[in-house]
């Protein structure tokens, strides 16, 4: 019993090590891409595929999150006569947690799956080996532009998700549930700070980087055949999803500690 357990643990540690090395190489290659304008065309193409084409789904996700929050929270707040404060609840939830996390999950499904499937197919059809055979680093050519595009554009996609979440919540609260628009915005403005919005957007860089690196790693290491590519896509999505949640928890702990340290100094700034 101990032997298989030990073997599995060793394999797990080895897997983490390989992933760490891949991530390190990817970020180094990304840094090098930044200083080589000759490779920008690859980044711009990936920005179009990863960023521009994801705008509609991310906007739809954000809008529905805002609208659902309004419907669900209205009853409880109205029972206490606090329905005008619905804006604070919706907007703080959207910009701080739900907008960034759900936009990232949507990206993990749309972009992560596509990246793994594309690179996985390239791997099994020897296209990655072909890149290597020409003396070109596959990580530099294939991974760096994807990581860079994902890392740079996820925060912007989160802004879209936040914006539509705010508008969706406003639409349902004011137009459908009849809450006074002035009071709705007034309470929202008092409750939501710049800190909340900016931390939500800041998470985007990390979520984007994690999605791209995990998906590319799974694509590069996928097993042969249609089943291998399918399994790699599933593993990539699960890996991205867990990482997004784990990173989000980490951010919640770190950012709240930072906030507590600097909040008393706010009146001095």
């Amino acid at each position: 019993m101990i032997e298989p357990l030990g073997a599995r643990t060793a394999a797990c540690v080895e897997g983490f090590g390989r992933f760490g090395r891949f991530a390190g190489e990817s970020f180094r290659a990304m840094g090098s891409t930044l200083f080589h304008p000759r490779s920008y065309y690859l980044v711009f193409y990936q920005m179009h595929v990863i960023g521009v084409k994801s705008v509609p789904v991310v906007m739809a996700t954000g809008a529905f999150v805002g609208m659902i929050l309004a419907i669900q929270a209205y009853g409880q707040l109205a029972a206490m006569g606090l329905e005008e404060r619905l804006g604070v609840l919706i907007n703080i939830s959207v910009v701080k947690e739900l907008g960034p996390v759900l936009a990232a999950v949507m990206l993990a499904g749309r972009v992560g799956g596509a990246l793994t499937a594309e690179l996985g197919t390239m791997n099994v059809t020897e296209q990655i080996a072909a890149v290597q055979s020409f003396g070109v680093s596959p990580i530099q050519y294939l991974v760096a532009p994807r990581v860079l595009a994902c890392l740079l554009l996820t925060p912007f996609l989160i802004i879209y998700a936040d914006l539509l979440g705010i508008l969706g919540g406003f639409f349902v609260s004011v137009k459908q549930l009849g809450i006074n628009a002035g009071a709705y915005w007034d309470y929202s403005a008092r409750g939501v700070e710049l800190w909340d919005v900016s931390t939500g957007i800041l998470k985007g860089f990390f979520f984007g980087g994690a999605i791209a690196v995990i998906s590319c790693y799974k694509g590069f290491n996928c097993r042969e055949g249609a089943r291998g590519v399918g399994e790699a896509c599933t593993e990539a999505f699960v890996g991205c999803f867990i990482s997004i949640l784990a990173l989000n928890y980490m951010f919640a702990v770190i950012l709240s500690a930072i906030y507590k340290i600097f909040w008393p100094l706010q009146p001095l700034i």
Binding site: M122, T125, E126, Q127, A129, A130, S133
Partner: peptide, 10 residues
């Protein structure tokens, strides 16, 4: 290197 299945970038 000329790969068995060509390995052209599709």
């Amino acid at each position: 290197f000329c790969f068995q299945m060509g390995a052209l970038f599709d």
